[in-house]
């Protein structure tokens, strides 16, 4: 009987997490969207300059970083699922894994950026490096904020407040984390690979 009810009635549509966070996420997406489009216009006007800059980028680190963010998102979804099953310790372990992946991303990104600064590359080197530095640093700051949010949820989860009936906090953190991952997928393809 239960199986019948479940198969005939799809789950009710609802906002995953806090609506205020989703408004913030939409604003963030709009900002990144404009940034990407302006990049595209500048690249379209100076394809050779952008291609030369991109050729000097090593793809190993950003590829690893994409894998880190995807693993972090997978762990985040696992965390939300565990809390929804009432499995608090497993949920917290998955959140810790998300932070570990985020930490890996930040460490590699920092290494990459320091390498660029050591080569004397700055915002005023040329248009490509201006976009490269501002986009990657802006995204880096978003990963940092994502880490802070996940860490806060991980800490709050100690007292077992996230139950199948009270998932708002975890889902809100997850929404933000996935947004940061989504933006990176486009950024990685556009800035590092597409030339």
């Amino acid at each position: 009987m239960k199986a019948l009810v479940q198969s005939s009635a799809p789950p009710e549509r609802r906002v995953p997490g806090d609506l205020a966070m989703w408004c913030f996420i939409l604003a963030e997406l709009a900002v990144f969207g404009v940034f990407f489009l302006v990049y595209a216009v500048f690249r379209w006007r100076e394809p050779a300059l952008f291609a030369a800059g991109q050729r000097s980028l090593d793809l190993t680190l950003p590829t690893l970083n994409t894998l880190f963010l995807l693993a972090g998102s997978a762990a985040m979804l696992a965390a939300v699922s565990r809390f929804a099953e009432g499995r608090q310790p497993a949920g917290r372990r998955a959140l810790a894994l998300t932070m570990l992946c985020g930490g890996g991303f930040l460490a590699l990104k920092l290494y990459e950026l320091v390498g660029k600064f050591a080569r004397g590359i700055t915002l005023s080197t040329n248009d490509f490096w201006m976009f490269y530095l501002s986009l990657t640093v802006f995204h880096f700051l978003h990963v940092v904020l994502g880490m802070v949010i996940v860490a806060a949820v991980w800490r709050l989860a100690r007292d077992g407040r996230y139950t199948p009936d009270a998932m708002d906090g975890v889902e809100t953190a997850a929404a933000y984390w996935h947004m940061v991952d989504l933006v990176w997928l486009v950024l990685f393809a556009l800035v590092y690979v597409a030339r």
Binding site: R14, V15, P16, A74, M76, A174, H178, D181, L182
Partner: peptide
Amino acid sequence: YYMGLRHAPR
């Protein structure tokens, strides 16, 4: 699937 928006309001 990650954001779970297939179950979110349209």
